[in-house]
């Protein structure tokens, strides 16, 4: 399932009351992040997954697609660290390459959101005449249950990795746009922005110089959680059989194929499931840390 609208919830934790000296803001941010234990834990987990993803060609010896009927249903052990599936494919290879796909899909969805979510949100928040139109459309897209919308869109587009990325982009961009719009709505009423307007600065300049940089913090926090949701929803789609086409080794696909053997060969689902969980946990911790440190509301309060 997709915790879709959850990302719109401001679930802010209490700030650590560290007295600040006058320092460069970026430095302060970095120092606070490095002092945030859970952020470091999340970062560590994510780093492991990213390393697996990047090193996949090096650390696996067998292709994740290589069938070997003789070895089917080998439990985890010395021959196959993670065991094999019903085709005798190495689950180690499949899970590691799955990490690569998860990271790629999550990253691409984040990129789509960063670009289109910002553009739509900024346009709606800044140009009041566009607001109604854009936000009605946005609301309509958000009114669909997220997983169903993703299923329908992948059904339309086709079952390749790229199509899944586009589908997830369509599902999540309205949510990002809404958050950006909220920040922009507040920022455009700020005195320094009004001053820039009075001084005759162009819209583009105002947006680029005065508004967007200040809307970045909530966006970055949103995107870090979005990464987690994208990974999770992609796995859900694959698991339901509507994600990236098998035999592509996504974690959801591995679990979907292993589902009918869950009693007699449970490792086929438990291992990729655990990988998925650890990844999402890492990303969520990362997001938490970023939010604690970056959330402007907390900064304002201090």
């Amino acid at each position: 399932m997709a915790p879709d609208t959850a990302i719109a919830v401001a679930d802010h934790v209490d700030a650590e009351d560290i007295p600040e000296k006058r320092q460069h803001p970026a430095r302060v941010t970095l120092r606070r992040l490095l002092h945030h234990r859970l952020f470091l834990l999340g970062g560590g987990l994510c780093l492991i997954v990213v390393l697996l993803a990047v090193l996949a060609p090096v650390i696996t010896t067998v292709s994740p697609y290589k069938l070997s009927m003789r070895n089917k249903f080998t439990p985890p052990g010395t021959d196959f660290v993670f065991g094999t599936d019903n085709f005798g494919r190495s689950l180690w290879s499949r899970v590691v390459w799955g990490a690569q796909l998860s990271m790629f899909i999550g990253g691409a969805v984040v990129l789509i959101n960063a670009v289109f979510g910002t553009a739509i949100g900024a346009a709606a928040g800044y140009f009041r005449r566009l607001d109604n139109l854009l936000m009605r459309f946005n609301d309509a897209l958000m009114a669909f249950p997220a997983v169903l919308l993703a299923i329908a869109v992948t059904a339309v587009l086709g079952p390749s990795v790229n199509d899944v990325i586009i589908a997830l982009g369509i599902v999540y961009t309205p949510r990002t746009a809404r958050i950006v719009r909220a920040s922009v709505l507040v920022l455009r009423e700020m005195e320094y922005v009004q001053a820039a307007v009075a001084a005759g600065a162009g819209h583009w300049r105002i947006l680029r110089r005065h508004i967007l940089p200040n809307a970045m913090a909530p966006l970055i926090v949103q995107l870090s959680f979005l990464f987690a949701y994208a990974v999770l929803t992609e796995a859900t789609l694959s698991f339901l059989g509507v994600g990236a086409v098998p035999p592509t080794p996504t974690w959801g696909n591995i679990m979907a194929e292993g589902r009918q053997y869950m009693i007699d060969a449970p490792w086929i689902i438990t291992i990729p499931g655990a990988a998925l969980m650890v990844t999402v946990l890492g990303l969520n911790l990362l997001g938490d840390g970023l939010r604690d440190v970056l959330d402007p509301r907390l900064r304002v309060q201090q």
Partner: peptide
């Protein structure tokens, strides 16, 4: 709570 929000519900 963190583990809860990281656990895919189908898993």
């Amino acid at each position: 709570a963190m583990i809860g929000i990281s656990l895919p519900n189908f898993y």
